Amino acid sequence: MTTWFITGCSTGLGRALAETVLAAGHDAAVTARDPRTLDDLVAAHPDHALALPLDVTDAAQVRSAVDRTLERFGAVDVAVNNAGYGYRAAVEEGDPADVARLFATNVTGAVDVMKAVLPGMRARRRGTVVNISSIGAQVCPPGSGYYAASKAALEALTASARTELAPLGITAMSVEPGGFRTDFAGRSLTQSPSAIEDYAGTAGKRRKEVDRAHGTQPGDPARAAAAIMAAVAAGRPPALLLLGTDALEAAEGVLDARRAELEAWRELSAGTDLDG
């Protein structure tokens, strides 16, 4: 039995992961901005579930939530940074305040959780950090530049942390889901308040009022949760776990395109070294 600390458990992948972890008999601190949305989880698993209020943009609340988890369960073995949301806008359309809130949630909030749980993991010389990213970090679709940038930043931080933590018996993993039947493309998706007509054919096609993807995604959140738990249980999970056939196909396309471009420009790239 391990103790999990999971952010963003009110809906979607976070909710599915909380249900899966608790059903397997593990302890779990399940968090949401409104913990009343988690009452049924606690009622179903009173000995193993701890529901906590958490807005990850509030660093003091992050520390408090982790402290209460330690008081109840004694340790955090697996920390999952799932809380986050989408934002759509052409790069030129992005509202500075909106973008700042996006990064505060998707990047800084996850880092604050890591900083809160890692001292205990270092002391015990074991633990796992799971940061939920998106295939968008690789694909970078038009209209999702800011969201993709936030997830790419989280992945870069996770990759560096993985190397830093490995000698201490701790591992860190990024997870890139494709499209899953969650609320991501519904309530959890925001966008710039204004649209520029020149981007109607690119970023404009992904605005909420014209996007029909919600409810048609191929991925099953319950199976995604089971895959994450299996990867963690493997002892040394991959640095990057892709979820969904759409994510696999997209990642393969990105890799092929990058390799082709690297080879096309190899001579120019290699010609910048000092002679001798």
Results as ranks from 00 to 15, higher is better:
Thr7Ala: 13
Thr7Tyr: 08
Gly8Lys: 10
Gly8Leu: 13
Gly8Tyr: 05
Cys9Ser: 04
Cys9Gln: 00
Cys9Met: 03
Cys9Lys: 00
Ser10Gln: 12
Ser10His: 06
Ser10Glu: 11
Ser10Tyr: 08
Thr11Asn: 12
Thr11Asp: 04
Thr11Lys: 15
Gly12Asn: 11
Gly12Glu: 05
Gly12Lys: 03
Leu13Glu: 05
Leu13Arg: 06
Gly14Pro: 03
Gly14His: 08
Gly14Lys: 05
Arg15Asn: 15
Arg15Cys: 13
Arg15Lys: 15
Arg15Ser: 12
Ala16His: 07
Ala16Val: 14
Ala16Gly: 14
Ala16Phe: 12
Ala16Leu: 13
Ala16Trp: 06
Ala16Met: 15
Leu17Trp: 02
Ala18Leu: 12
Ala18His: 02
Ala18Asp: 02
Ala18Phe: 03
Ala18Lys: 02
Ala18Gly: 08
Ala18Cys: 10
Glu19Gly: 04
Glu19Arg: 10
Thr20Ala: 15
Thr20Pro: 06
Val21Arg: 03
Val21Tyr: 04
Val21Pro: 03
Ala23Asn: 10
Ala24His: 01
Ala24Glu: 08
Ala24Ser: 10
Ala24Ile: 07
Gly25Pro: 05
Gly25Arg: 05
Gly25Trp: 07
Gly25Asp: 07
His26Trp: 11
Asp27Arg: 10
Asp27Trp: 01
Asp27His: 10
Ala28Tyr: 03
Ala28Val: 06
Ala28His: 00
Ala29Asn: 01
Ala29Glu: 00
Ala29Leu: 01
Ala29His: 01
Val30Pro: 02
Val30Glu: 01
Thr31Lys: 00
Thr31Tyr: 07
Thr31Asn: 08
Ala32Leu: 08
Arg33Tyr: 14
Arg33Asp: 13
Arg33Val: 14
Asp34Arg: 15
Asp34Leu: 09
Pro35Val: 13
Arg36His: 10
Thr37Arg: 11
Thr37Asn: 09
Thr37Val: 06
Thr37Ile: 08
Leu38Tyr: 05
Leu38Gln: 02
Leu38Arg: 01
Leu38Ala: 05
Asp39His: 12
Asp39Arg: 14
Asp39Pro: 12
Asp39Ile: 12
Asp39Tyr: 10
Asp40Ala: 15
Leu41Ser: 03
Leu41Val: 12
Leu41His: 07
Val42His: 07
Val42Trp: 03
Val42Ala: 06
Ala43Ile: 14
Ala43Glu: 15
Ala43Met: 14
Ala43Asp: 15
Ala43Lys: 15
Ala43Gln: 15
Ala43Leu: 14
Ala43Val: 13
Ala44Cys: 06
Ala44Ile: 04
His45Ile: 10
His45Trp: 11
His45Leu: 10
His45Asp: 13
His45Val: 13
Pro46Ser: 13
Asp47Glu: 14
Asp47Lys: 13
His48Pro: 04
His48Gly: 07
His48Gln: 15
His48Val: 09
Ala49Tyr: 00
Ala49Asn: 01
Leu50Asn: 00
Leu50Phe: 01
Leu50Pro: 00
Leu50Met: 08
Leu50Arg: 02
Leu50Gln: 00
Leu50Ile: 07
Leu50Ser: 01
Ala51Arg: 09
Leu52Asn: 02
Leu52Arg: 01
Leu52Asp: 01
Pro53Leu: 03
Pro53Met: 06
Pro53Ala: 10
Pro53Ser: 11
Leu54Ile: 04
Leu54Phe: 00
Leu54Gln: 04
Leu54Met: 07
Asp55Val: 05
Asp55Thr: 10
Asp55Cys: 06
Val56Ala: 02
Val56Phe: 04
Thr57Phe: 06
Thr57Met: 06
Thr57Cys: 09
Thr57Asp: 03
Asp58Trp: 08
Asp58Gln: 11
